[in-house]
Amino acid sequence: MSLQCIIVEDLQVAADYLGRCCEKSGLASVKAHFTNVPEALEYLDKNAVDLLFLDVEMPGATGFELLDQMAYHPKVILTTSKSEYAYNAFEYNVTDFLKKPFTYQRFLEALHKVGQASEQSLVQNSTDHIFIKSDGKLVRLNNDDILFIESMGDYVKFVTPDKKYITHNTIKNLEEKVNKHFFMKVHRSYIINITKIDDIRENDLFIKGNEIPISKAHKGEILKRLNII
């Protein structure tokens, strides 16, 4: 399956080359190219992508600033001509770092790393249950029993049909750990079980009578995951 990606790069020749590498590989499909961060952010607010090819130094704002402002995090390959950014790349958990110009072979290696990282996260998140610490004990919750998870500052609330469990954690942390086949973040304060959605109206979704806001940034991804016929 081809990865849906965008290129954020202000050097035309580099963007063209990257697009060509994607096309040649057949592994990545370029949905759009942007030369600055605000336009890329606007696109990413409305559209979900699997992979971001991201330059660091661009007019107005840096690639790292874009990552800071994104509501979700696709896989990222940094493309820059400065090796000094490698450390920041590590800090931002980017999948690979391509120093411009790079060979096609090197590009392929980066794409394979993306594939490996995706598989790894799928394996890590593929269990059918989680354990949470609540009321001084470890409680097993089956994925299928969880309706949604709501942020409460430094705590989160796991809501099941019968009970609510409060535990010390954050939505940001849980987003990485829950099974992505079932769960997705729909708002900075909510992760929902996608199989439990009853209906969606404008910018809210409903699960067993609970109204949950959908942020603009996540709406595209939700619609993409629904079985709309």
Partner: peptide
């Protein structure tokens, strides 16, 4: 200068 730099590599 940083912007034009990689163009020469290409």
């Amino acid at each position: 200068v940083h912007k034009i730099k990689p163009a020469f590599g290409f």
